[in-house]
Simulated scan of single mutants.
Amino acid sequence: MQSRPLPSRRAFAGFLTAGAGLAVLTACTPESSTASAEVSTATPSPSAAMASEPAAVTPAAAASSTPASPPPSSAAATGFSLTDPVSPWVVVNKHRPLNPPNYVPADLVQPAVRLAVSGEASMVNSTTASAAEKMFGAAAAEGVVMTLASGYRSYTTQIATYNGHVAGSGQAAADRASARPGFSEHQTGWAFDIADGGGACSFQPCFADQPAAIWAKANAHKYGFVVRYPWMFHDTTGYFYESWHLRYIGVDAATDMATRGISTLEQYFGLEAAPDYL
């Protein structure tokens, strides 16, 4: 898997600290590391985090937090599991680890899109791949070139990534810079990061002003994707704005979220905010 150096993440932290008085949190951080620091034993178990979770839900619960919004469309109201990683609606955040934590999608494929990475990082599940091909094609037809910059990330890769941060700066800082193993959306196969065709501002705050990010923010829902970590919703999602991180939930649900002005999966499915690990 292609790795990226840490300075861009540190630059992101400096930007937020100086400009907004905030420390950066990121779920992406695809850098790999061979550091041998042990994974924190403070990670909550999947059974504890999900014991009271129903097997399948509809987004109707979100209506209580957005009373002025119309009810979910009949198409979007079809229930999917929020805990099963094979579900397009699985919600993974700092309160909701994957179950099992070492989950591997059975249908990983490399989409026929422009790639900035190789190996496992160039792969997503087959449903996401098909939707990505349509989205990248539509963007290209409008003169916007985007690349897939980081796709699937295995549990083993996330261990190395997270432990590299722990070894370099301690666990508290690591939790602000990298998802713990078993807590990354990238492991589900439903998420990937994009970059602009010219490579400008990749994984940096200024990426939000690049053509690929602008186009995706306005159009990704038409192909089933949402910007998973939107601007100024870090107290809900646990991560600061990542204009490059797209998550597939299906066209109906993504369009329903866009139409109703709902920004996060936590709000849409009526789940608690997850700013920090339990």
Rank of each mutant, 00 (worst) to 15 (best):
C28M: 06
A55T: 04
S263K: 12
R180S: 13
A220T: 01
P211I: 01
V104E: 11
R228S: 04
D209S: 14
G250K: 01
Y229K: 05
Y223Q: 00
P67T: 08
A253V: 10
K134G: 03
N125W: 07
A75T: 14
S126T: 12
A140W: 04
Y239G: 03
P7E: 07
G182N: 06
Q158H: 06
S178A: 15
N93C: 12
S73M: 07
T236R: 06
T41C: 01
P5R: 07
A179D: 12
H186L: 13
S122V: 07
S178T: 12
F80M: 05
D196L: 01
A200C: 04
G189R: 13
G119D: 08
A179S: 11
A68K: 02
S202G: 02
K94S: 15
K217A: 12
V227T: 10
S65T: 07
P72A: 11
L271P: 04
A174H: 04
T128P: 05
V113T: 10
T29Y: 08
N102R: 14
D276R: 15
V39K: 08
T66V: 04
M135P: 07
G137M: 07
S126I: 06
P101C: 09
P71N: 09
S32A: 09
R4W: 13
E272F: 10
R153T: 10
S3T: 09
S8A: 03
T188C: 02
T41H: 07
T259H: 06
R114F: 03
W231P: 01
L22E: 15
M135T: 06
P30S: 01
F15N: 05
G224M: 10
W231T: 01
A11M: 02
Y152K: 05
A195W: 05
F80S: 07
W231C: 04
A106D: 13
V145E: 15
D256I: 09
I249T: 11
L246T: 00
T26H: 04
A200H: 07
G119L: 15
P275Q: 10
I194D: 06
N219P: 09
A18D: 14
P101N: 09
T127N: 05
P67I: 11
Y239I: 02
C28L: 04
D193M: 06
R180V: 12
P275H: 13
W231R: 11
T41Y: 00
V91W: 00
S263W: 00
A141M: 00
Y277S: 14
A213I: 03
A220Y: 02
K134P: 00
M135L: 14
H186W: 03
G151K: 13
A20S: 13
G119K: 10
P5H: 05
P100W: 09
